[in-house]
Design a protein around this nucleic acid. Structure first.
Lengths: 124, 124
DNA sequence: CCGGATCCAAAGAGATACTG
DNA sequence: CAGTATCTCTTTGGATCCGG
């Protein structure tokens, strides 16, 4: 089973290591639910607890991976739009599947977390 | 659009915030491809670049969420098995869908990353 | 020996002020 | 408005120690 090893040729690790950051998946999904085209400020407003810095960093990474395209309009004040590429549009539905799963099972997960907390606390 | 906000009631944020760590998704998928039952050392061997510490922490989190069950055998040397719960088994196929997408598109993504590097370098 | 806990250093993320 | 710079705090990695 070498497919999960940290080799540069492992496709799963190459892509999942990227998604294993805090914001990439969420940004893609938000873009997906807004027609695939949003301004920087819109994204910031919808994902209200992301910092400006991390939104910038995350969008750069998504741009590098070819999932999002950046359009800069040299105006004052400046306007920057981000839109899903064809590759990004192809990915988003898969993420939405996970999101639907999350919606369906979040209650069970939250209950489980509470139960676990009590179990751990009782051992102190 | 409040569904992506950082409220305690947002199902997507509740679940995705957890998956937005470095190892959870990978551990689930490895368990899935090994019949849903593995020893600690097996997991460590397959995911060769995870540290013992982070594997322990990740498994505790998955246990808290009710995705993985921990079985401790009081032997010498000790044996600890982790297996997917029903909830975990239900989730894994959705992760595998993403993995399949990753396999299919990893080449395109890697090419895009190289192109982006060159573009950035040319601006220095 | 195996699973894991602890301590310290490094990397990633958050807060805020500032620029074109 | 979008992005950068800097400083601080949290998360992760690495090495070592421990209990059965």
């Amino acid at each position: 089973m070498e497919i999960f090893s940290n080799s540069p040729t492992c496709p799963i690790r190459n892509v999942f290591d990227r998604f294993g950051d805090k914001w990439s998946v969420l940004v893609l999904m938000v873009l997906g639910t807004h027609g695939g085209l949003m301004r920087f400020g819109e994204l910031k407003e919808v994902i209200d607890d992301i910092t400006q810095k991390m939104l910038t960093v995350t969008l750069r990474t998504l741009e590098a991976d070819g999932l999002v395209a950046r359009k800069y309009y040299q105006e004052i004040p400046p306007r920057v739009e981000y839109q899903l590429t064809d590759l990004g549009k192809d990915l988003v539905p898969h993420i939405e599947n996970l999101a639907n799963w999350a919606s369906k099972h979040v209650d069970q997960i939250l209950r489980s977390r509470k139960r676990f907390e009590k179990k751990v606390a009782s051992k102190d």
